[in-house]
Design a protein around this nucleic acid. Structure first.
Ligand SMILES: [Mn+2]
Ligand SMILES: [Mn+2]
Ligand SMILES: [Zn+2]
Ligand SMILES: [Zn+2]
Lengths: 138, 138
DNA sequence: TCAACAGATTAGAATGATTTTAATGTATGT
DNA sequence: ACATACATTAAAATCATTCTAATCTGTTGA
């Protein structure tokens, strides 16, 4: 079976074989010119709405985790009962709207680069995330 | 019944009556000169080790949530199966050691103040958190 | 002082996201 | 086409957190 090589590559590089379920997930995640933020529940809902095929929760979790590990998706650190993921893997930061429970991108240019003077012996920095919580102003 | 007024005040200001369970929680959280990071499970374990009294999980959750809401504790945003809290409520940031699953304080002086140029109409910034994930360097 | 009651405690049940299981199905190299 | 490693799935398990509802206690005002 042969699939859109763009998706097949992403899957193989993530250590996964291309299957129709995974290709469907790729179509939802990587088709659009717009990036977006989502939870697993969001993603399942989108797939259900578009799809002629059914994808089990387990497969959605497995695939998202593999993409996150490979770096094709980013998990955004918020305290929430669910994990939030981002299809925008460029270096950028976030507002988290606590009224709407929604992430909003902050372009890298809109935040001065975060410089941390402290270091921990034997450890290296893997990522730096800035989360600014926002609420209705009144 | 009368209790250490330091703890009684914190409790009343958080909208809670002083009870022996809650005072015990206060002793663990606020007695030490050192601040620390903890999960609910950590806190329950510390209480069990020190205490002559038993405190139910429900009471621990309720009390921690009230202190967090009032600002006597801070919840630290990490993606983890459990919530992390901080008894250090001064403005500061964190390393998260992914090998040890441990938070490490970064003094405010060790990070340039984060300035965000972007604004969202009708919304105000409630907090800004910087999380730097660290891993063993080799 | 003390009864009345609002609020607190608790064990255990419920919830809900995530992970695991194990039976069945499929992609891939030969 | 075959063998095999990997994938899919429904359902169960896990586990942090929240809820419930029965019982208890701090507080207050008569
Ligand atoms: Mn995860
Ligand atoms: Mn919480
Ligand atoms: Zn984003
Ligand atoms: Zn801290």
């Amino acid at each position: 079976m042969t699939y859109d090589p763009k998706y097949e590559n992403k899957l193989r590089e993530s250590g996964l074989r291309p299957t129709k379920q995974r290709i469907k997930i790729c179509e939802v995640l990587f088709n659009s010119t717009e990036t977006f933020h989502f939870t697993i529940k969001d993603l399942v809902k989108i797939i259900e709405n578009q799809a002629n095929i059914k994808v089990s929760l387990a497969t959605v979790y497995n695939t998202v985790h593999a993409f996150n590990k490979k770096g094709y998706l980013k998990e955004i650190p918020i305290n929430s009962s669910q994990s939030y993921y981002d299809t925008n893997i460029s270096h950028h930061h976030h507002f988290f709207d606590e009224d709407e429970n929604k992430l909003i991108d902050i372009d890298q240019n809109d935040v001065d680069e975060v410089m941390i003077k402290k270091t921990i012996p034997g450890k290296k920095i893997k990522s730096i995330e800035v989360i600014a919580k926002i609420v209705t102003d009144n």
